[in-house]
Design a binder for these strands. Structure first.
Length: 632
RNA sequence: GGGCAUGUGGCGCAACUUGGAUAGCGCAUCUGGCUUCGGACCAGAUGGUUGCGGGUUCAAAUCCCGUCAUGCCCGCCA
């Protein structure tokens, strides 16, 4: 991993920079060039390295070795003040070696003092971020694709919070969609009674109805239902909302089981009621981003002229269509229009007269969950500086249009603040997860988030029987199962499409959640045996720091802030997952090679490492929603 | 037709944004390690023309051009 402590980087930068200024003025090397040249090499090469001399050699017409020699020579006087105690020239690379005792002391001190705050960053500066996920149609149980979305959103929320952003987690509930209309029709006409978890049952009704859509009469009835739902204020619209709310309640049970939290749910039916849509359309027309079409194919519609988007993205260079419809000729709004209005509200352009009330008093994170509704109080949601949407990459084009609309309205700055975090959709081996076909209900297995968790728990309990320590399997099954699944879903780059494998998601070995949790539990055992839970810094003799596994582990702990900042900047939970493995495997090596209890004089120093490791590992596990347990 | 993404040992992935030392990790396979802080572990071995072809560079998995394969998107659906 190319991370290390920031102060050490600054230190090396200053030395190198001074050396260049003195010996190679005019070489055109900038500050960022120097930082970019740094990397963390293999341990044998040192703790931090710069390849900048290879570049300077070129412009200066000198040998890299000679360049490095001069810079290192001049740098000697700066050594010993900070972390860097020695510089070595290796074929033109400048390799810095830290004073391991000083570095160990500062890092462990920092961890033990800051505790839960260790690794946090203030880069967000309190900026308000509204992040939307998973926005599942409220008529079915979450399948593993929805779960993936929600886990990404929840984890990115945690990461952004850890970086000083003020995060608002929002779930959009499309209770006016065709899917709810179909489920409602089934509920009213099929005569089945709920006999299982409500969302699961409702999803089954939906699939049944879908198979009946070839019947024109059914289709007509559903269309009529949908229209009444949108109009509101009638028996069907009330029924639809009731149904959707029951489903959402069941969905939230799933979310809670996975420790996924939200701050607020925005219902489409409430959005429609606020009159935001017409306000948004008026603004779009006024700002010249959309216009009423009087003739031709789109007569009577409000459309966006796609030609105007030329240059904003390659997608628009040769568009298939000339226009994108916002308002249909019959006066109804398309998805893009609704989305535009909603995002204008998110970014503070529209007033949006929402009423909020509590849906849940307390979630896993201790905070309440609010919902919009016809009654309730005024609250300060929305008006965010940054709006992030967790949406599958198949929706890239509509998301791009949405973003581009802000540019068209002359608000390029807002366009920049609308971020689509795209992820590759998950698929099953030889199968689809398509909602319409009910693909999540495979013939041999039901691929819902609920069944996955149930299977995982079973496996954990089975595995816990073999555990060397006596553990109450039922007690930890929950945490370990969630940890296994969350890690498996979050460990890879979002862009990669995942072909879901049950076995892999439930993997307990190697690069897995349980491996991290196991590491934590082992560390905890040492403290229990030593009967220590905290140490005062002045009780620790850091002269026992060695250049071995102890120092490698301490260096890993020192990376924390850089890691979380990168994960936040790039919206990538997988960076945290990688880091957890780095910490865990670092500790395992230390653990196998180094005796802690009964090691005599170094014991307290080593215990300090164990305490710190647990702290850092725990802090970062929680970013991914993995709860460390003392025993497993 | 156009756009976007992906392609790295048998399998799953990392490193690519910011070019830099021997391409890193896990699974699988083979060898070794529990009377000693938890074997959900550790140590070691086998396995790679980084899809292919050009180019730029002292240096390319990384940048540029071309090409192939796979997936997704391009509606008065949501």
């Amino acid at each position: 991993m190319p991370y290390t402590s920031k102060t050490a980087k600054t230190e090396l930068h200053d030395i190198v920079s001074a050396g260049i200024a003195k010996n190679y003025p005019g070489s055109g090397i900038s500050e960022s060039d120097i930082y970019a040249s740094m990397s963390v090499p293999k341990a044998e090469f040192g703790d931090l390295s710069s390849s900048i001399c290879l570049r300077i050699a070129k412009v200066a017409g000198a040998k890299p070795q000679d360049v490095a020699e001069r810079i290192i020579g001049d740098g000697q006087s700066s050594l010993g003040k900070g972390y860097i105690k020695e510089l070595k020239n290796a074929n033109g690379y400048i390799n810095a070696f830290f004073d391991e005792k000083k570095y160990a002391r500062d890092t462990l001190k920092s961890v033990m003092e800051l505790k839960e705050g260790y690794g946090l960053s203030s880069m967000g500066g309190g900026k308000r971020v509204m992040i939307e996920f998973p926005s599942v149609n409220p008529n079915k149980a979450w399948h593993i694709g929805h779960l993936l979305n929600a886990l990404i959103g929840d984890s990115i929320s945690n990461i952004l919070s850890a970086c000083g952003y003020s995060v608002e987690r929002e779930n959009y509930i499309d209770d006016l969609g065709i899917q709810v209309a179909e489920s409602l029709w089934g509920y009213l006409n099929l005569g089945n009674k709920p006999d299982k978890k409500f969302d699961t049952w409702l999803g089954e009704q939906y699939v049944s109805v879908n198979r009946m859509l070839s019947d024109e009469k059914v289709k007509k009835e559903i269309d009529a239902l949908m229209k009444r739902m949108e109009e509101g204020g009638n028996e069907d619209s009330v029924k639809a909302r009731e149904l959707a709310e029951r489903c959402v309640k069941a969905n939230i049970e799933t979310a809670s089981a996975y420790r996924i939290c939200h701050d607020v749910m925005m219902w489409e039916s409430d959005i429609v009621r606020t009159g935001m849509l017409s306000e948004a359309m008026d603004m779009a027309v006024e700002k010249g981003a959309a216009a009423r079409s009087d003739e031709g194919k789109y007569a009577g519609c409000i459309v966006v002229d796609l030609k105007k988007l030329k240059g904003i993205a390659k997608d628009f260079d040769n568009p298939n269509e000339e226009s994108k419809v916002l308002i249909r000729s019959n006066g109804t709004a398309t998805y893009v229009a609704k989305d535009l209005a909603f995002h204008m509200w998110k970014l503070g352009l529209l007033k949006g007269d929402f009423r909020y009330s509590k849906f849940l008093d307390s979630q896993y994170n201790g905070k309440p969950l609010y919902t919009t509704g016809s009654s309730g109080e005024d609250m300060e949601f929305g008006g965010a500086e940054i709006a992030i949407n967790i949406i599958g990459s198949e929706q890239r084009y509509p998301q791009l249009i949405l973003k581009s609309m802000f540019s068209l309205m002359g608000m390029r700055d807002l366009a920049e603040k609308l971020i689509h975090v795209a992820y590759g959709e998950i698929s099953l081996k030889g199968g689809t997860l398509s909602g319409r076909s009910g693909g999540w209900m495979g013939s041999d297995h039901v691929y819902t988030a609920d069944t996955l968790l149930a299977d995982a728990k079973e496996k954990v309990i089975e595995r816990a029987k073999e555990s060397k320590k006596k553990v109450d399997a039922a007690e930890v099954a929950d945490a370990v199962a969630v940890g296994a699944i969350r890690f498996a879903f979050l460990k890879t780059n979002l862009e990669k499409k995942i072909v879901f494998s049950w076995d892999e998601a439930l993997s307990f070995e190697g690069n897995s959640g349980p491996y991290c949790m196991y590491t934590y539990a082992r560390a905890n055992s040492i403290l229990e045996r030593a009967n220590v839970s905290s140490l005062a810094i002045n009780e620790i003799n850091f002269s026992y720091a060695e250049r071995r596994y102890d120092f490698e582990l301490i260096k890993a702990m020192g990376m924390a802030q850089e890691v979380v900042e990168k994960a936040a900047a790039e919206h990538r939970p997988d960076i945290i997952a990688d880091y957890l493995i780095e910490l865990s495997s670092g500790f395992s090596k230390f653990y196998e090679s180094t005796k802690v209890i009964g090691s005599g004089e170094p014991e307290r120093y080593r215990i300090a490492i164990v305490i710190s490791l647990m702290q850092v590992l725990g802090n970062f596990m929680r970013l991914l929603g993995i709860e460390p347990v003392a025993k497993m």
